[in-house]
Design a protein around this nucleic acid. Structure first.
Length: 189
DNA sequence: CAGTGGATGCTCT
DNA sequence: GAGCATCCACTGT
């Protein structure tokens, strides 16, 4: 079952936790989203914070579309744009539990361990073949496919990874205890 | 298991 | 010219 048409027409802080458990496929290859981070329009760590530029234009576009950017000159990172147009906010997809097309992922990644195929924003883009070519594309149309989750997973919540500004905001969400997250959370009691 | 440093290409100041 | 929303290899416990 596909996601509702208005799934992304709300705050990133509501969308991000609701994405955990959703299945993401790109040309039939992908898995269950187990980790995501929210970046809102008043967030100094967000690319849209200082206004619209050529790179972040997709963030200012309609919700339910992809924002893909190059990270550290090497990797690609995939975001889902949220809220109305002209409000720059998006959710960074940080990790998947691979379920579809593992053979293709292994070839693209050059390794076998399922835990290392999609456990990080750069890794999952390599495994799913996501590049700049996907920037601005609708998540409701091929090659993307999003399938609604069944039930409500328990969440781990923590601070975001790899940033220096607004580093204390608890805007990182993950499926509790998943071995497929990019980094472990603080020990839970 | 923790910490460090290099690769690498843009974007923005 | 600085600074990355990262990953991997390598070091030392």
């Amino acid at each position: 079952m596909k996601l509702g048409r208005d799934f992304f027409d709300r705050s990133v802080h509501e969308v991000a936790p609701h994405l955990i458990g959703v299945t993401l496929l790109v040309d039939g290859v992908g898995g269950v989203i187990v980790e995501a981070e929210a970046y809102d329009q008043e967030d100094p760590a967000a690319h849209g914070y200082r206004g619209r530029t050529e790179r972040n234009a997709s963030m200012f576009g309609p919700p339910g579309h992809a924002y893909v950017y190059r990270s550290y000159g090497i990797h690609w990172c995939l975001n889902f744009v949220c809220e109305p147009s002209d409000v720059a906010s998006a959710v960074l997809i940080r990790a998947l539990e691979p379920t579809h097309g593992l053979d293709i992922m292994r070839i693209r990644r050059g390794l076998d361990d399922p835990r290392l195929l999609c456990s990080g924003p750069g890794r999952l883009c390599q495994a799913l073949g996501v590049t700049r070519a996907h920037d601005g594309r609708s998540l409701a149309d091929p090659p993307f496919e999003l399938r609604a989750r069944q039930g409500t997973p328990e969440l781990d919540i923590g601070t975001r990874v790899g940033i220096t500004k607004a580093a204390d905001e608890l805007w990182r969400y993950a499926m509790a205890g998943s071995p497929f997250v990019s980094r472990r959370f603080r020990s839970r009691d």
